[in-house]
Design a protein around this nucleic acid. Structure first.
Lengths: 189, 189
DNA sequence: AACAATATTTGACCTGGATCAAATATTATA
DNA sequence: TATAATATTTGATCCAGGTCAAATATTGTT
């Protein structure tokens, strides 16, 4: 989930109205989740967002009995089943901790209320959503223009921490490649 | 660009502060563009958004000499090279009118200023961006889980107006299918 | 209507990457 | 350190959908 232009986020935070950030912190609690535990399961409605402080999580859904990973979340990322959270209705995605995870947990309703009070939080939310959409566009672009090896090389180049810290089986479906083909790509690189 | 939960947009607009919508209209001008003309070209920075009132536009980029269409815009859609607009830097995408197009054109800077003044416009922008991200997620989902025929059937089912009004060559790359394969799919359905 | 340009279909052939199956590593646990 | 469980690699085979080429429709223009 490394995102281009992330420095814009820091800049926006730095210029927030005094109360805004405090309000966000007031409605958030830091919690720790065991490795393998689920922050959200299929068919549930995402009522919390998880700002990862430490550890790694992944998001996936089932295509038949096959798990398709759609995102990895590292420190500072916002772990979320986006569509379920936005539409506040049950979704298809799971969010699971790959390692033990510590996260700042914020309730949807409470954040909505805070945004009503502090337009800066609204701006903050907008910027994060914009960057997420840009990231999604980039992902679609790669699937349309790059073959399996190029997609793996790009991941290696732009997100080496994923390749270094996440089991290959998760990376394969994230790249839209079978486990076997990804293994062969690695062998010949 | 048909988006789930679009009724939320109407609801939000209905409850806007009095001045907000008027402010948006004040910074917008309605213009007409000839069929085939470009609202944006590759390597330009998108400094305007185009709220389509009538006609059809498409967005695409070049992969070598091959055009990859990434969106179609019909009446009420917001025609935009999203990443270029958001990051305010040159992008790879073209936005071209497939028919004569009438659109309400809004300047990026002017809209940013209006959002500073009217938080309701901020909310409006956020909602549109959220729905766009959900739409992108859905598109990625389809590419991961559906074969060529299923993707075409889904388009036919969810966006029949596209299939009815847009040349096949544009639809093919939009679905990530070669023109020939799409033609064969249509023949056997 | 006749011609040119553009769009769509059809045919033949090929390949990237999937699937199925089995062999090795690697890691975790008693 | 064994043993089980999990992860990764390697081999053999197959096919959805791509590419190249050519035949038809269809549409626009004089």
């Amino acid at each position: 989930m490394m995102i281009p232009g992330s420095d814009k986020v820091d800049e926006l935070i730095a210029h927030m109205a005094p109360g805004a950030l405090a309000a966000l912190e007031n409605i958030s609690v830091t919690r720790t989740f065991a490795k393998g535990s689920f922050l959200l399961r299929q068919d549930e409605t995402a009522r919390k967002s998880y700002h990862i402080l430490d550890g790694i999580a992944r998001r996936y859904y089932l295509d038949g009995d096959r798990e398709i990973t759609t995102a990895f979340f590292f420190a500072d990322d916002l772990a979320l089943a986006f569509d379920s959270y936005i539409l506040q209705r049950p979704g298809r995605e799971f969010v699971q901790c790959i390692t033990e995870v510590t996260a700042s947990v914020t309730d949807y309703q409470a954040f909505e209320a805070a945004k009503q009070k502090y337009p800066d939080l609204l701006r903050f939310d907008l910027l994060l959503t914009e960057l997420y959409a840009v990231w999604l566009e980039e992902r679609l672009f790669e699937f349309h223009t790059c073959n399996a090896e190029q997609r793996y090389r790009t991941l290696l180049d732009k997100d080496p921490h994923i390749v270094l810290q996440v089991p290959l089986k998760y990376i394969a479906s994230y790249l839209g490649i079978s486990l076997e083909t990804l293994s062969r790509i690695r062998a010949r690189i």
